Amino acid sequence: MSSDWAWADVDVAVPDRSVQLPGVSMAGFRQRLRTPVEIAMVAHPAITLIVDLSDGIVYDVAGCRRRGSFVAGLLPVDAKAGGWRGECLQIRLSPVVAAAVLDASTELTGGVATLKEVWGRDAERLEDRLRGAASWEERFAVAVDAIGRRLGDRSVDPEIAYGWRRMVASRGRIRVRGLADEVGWSRKRLWSRFRHQLGISPKRAVQLARFDRAAHLLAAGHAAASVATRSGYVDQSHLNREVKAIAGVTPIAVATAPWLAIDKVAWPTGPRA
């Protein structure tokens, strides 16, 4: 399977503002690729659901290849997604939403699992409804309805939800101790509850939000030294270390990652905008 990804051979659909849920963003893809391809996934402060609508999605995790709909956690190191011809719906859930609607909270970090493993018995029903929809607009509405129906089942502490929003809004330029003071908790309690409910430590979450900012500056062509300064790293060496720790690759590889190249088209109002 080739690693050369041609976005010119992929049609992208996005929902209008009337089809939205807080913490949820979506994009539809129709691939007209001449040969099967795969691209490495890049860490992002959202859980990624890829729903296969035409039996054409293949994903690879550390050399183990599988087919069908899947869910990737916040840090999908060594994970690749691809296919050939067909359609898929990609849904990004903030960890706060994901903790409420998915069945396996352990997959909120670095895991990759089948949709059925984290959506339960409703996964097949969701796929059937999406495949039967007549348009992307209808598919987006079906997805919003399915997610909305599950939101009432579980929820995270308001303090944890607030903490996550602050981390993402600040692009990782916030201290965990200061955040604990903001919500009126001890640092120990915030650390424990955050990790228990979102599957990631507050420190790692801050690093991920900071990395996301840096990754998009790198992809936009900015020099690594400038990116380090603008993203809140101590210096370029600090940037290099954290990018390697988060993504498993160098800043140069992140700068040319095809996974990021479609963001300004597919996610115009998403968390990365």
Rank of each mutant, 00 (worst) to 15 (best):
residue 171 R to Q: 09
residue 255 A to T: 03
residue 82 G to N: 01
residue 229 T to A: 12
residue 266 A to I: 06
residue 248 G to L: 07
residue 187 R to F: 06
residue 169 A to W: 04
residue 201 S to W: 01
residue 263 D to L: 07
residue 239 L to T: 04
residue 210 R to D: 05
residue 149 R to A: 10
residue 240 N to K: 09
residue 144 V to K: 07
residue 245 A to V: 03
residue 46 A to D: 04
residue 150 R to L: 10
residue 11 D to P: 00
residue 238 H to N: 15
residue 69 S to N: 07
residue 271 P to N: 07
residue 30 R to K: 06
residue 195 R to D: 14
residue 54 S to P: 07
residue 136 W to G: 12
residue 145 D to P: 02
residue 44 H to T: 10
residue 47 I to C: 02
residue 159 E to K: 11
residue 160 I to Q: 00
residue 101 V to K: 08
residue 256 T to G: 03
residue 247 A to S: 15
residue 36 P to I: 10
residue 100 A to Y: 01
residue 50 I to Q: 05
residue 64 C to S: 13
residue 168 V to D: 02
residue 31 Q to E: 10
residue 233 Y to G: 07
residue 94 S to D: 13
residue 43 A to T: 10
residue 133 A to Y: 06
residue 58 V to L: 05
residue 181 D to H: 10
residue 6 A to Q: 11
residue 140 F to W: 09
residue 235 D to L: 05
residue 101 V to M: 03
residue 103 D to G: 08
residue 268 P to S: 11
residue 183 V to L: 07
residue 55 D to I: 01
residue 74 L to S: 05
residue 21 L to A: 14
residue 44 H to N: 10
residue 192 S to R: 07
residue 202 P to C: 09
residue 18 S to Y: 00
residue 189 R to T: 15
residue 53 L to Y: 00
residue 222 H to Y: 10
residue 97 V to A: 03
residue 268 P to L: 12
residue 141 A to L: 00
residue 194 F to C: 11
residue 266 A to W: 08
residue 45 P to F: 02
residue 9 D to P: 03
residue 197 Q to W: 05
residue 133 A to N: 03
residue 136 W to S: 11
residue 32 R to L: 08
residue 38 E to G: 08
residue 147 I to C: 08
residue 266 A to Q: 08
residue 92 R to I: 01
residue 118 V to S: 14
residue 21 L to E: 13
residue 171 R to A: 12
residue 141 A to E: 11
residue 90 Q to T: 14
residue 46 A to K: 07
residue 78 D to I: 00
residue 16 D to V: 14
residue 154 R to Q: 12
residue 124 E to F: 13
residue 1 M to S: 15
residue 113 A to E: 07
residue 138 E to G: 10
residue 247 A to I: 03
residue 45 P to H: 02
residue 123 A to V: 06
residue 246 I to T: 13
residue 268 P to Q: 07
residue 31 Q to N: 11
residue 229 T to N: 04
residue 132 G to P: 01
residue 8 A to V: 03
residue 137 E to H: 08
residue 209 A to W: 00
residue 100 A to C: 08
residue 265 V to C: 01
residue 74 L to W: 00
residue 54 S to K: 08
residue 59 Y to S: 05
residue 260 L to Q: 04
residue 4 D to K: 12
residue 95 P to I: 11
residue 247 A to W: 04
residue 243 V to L: 10
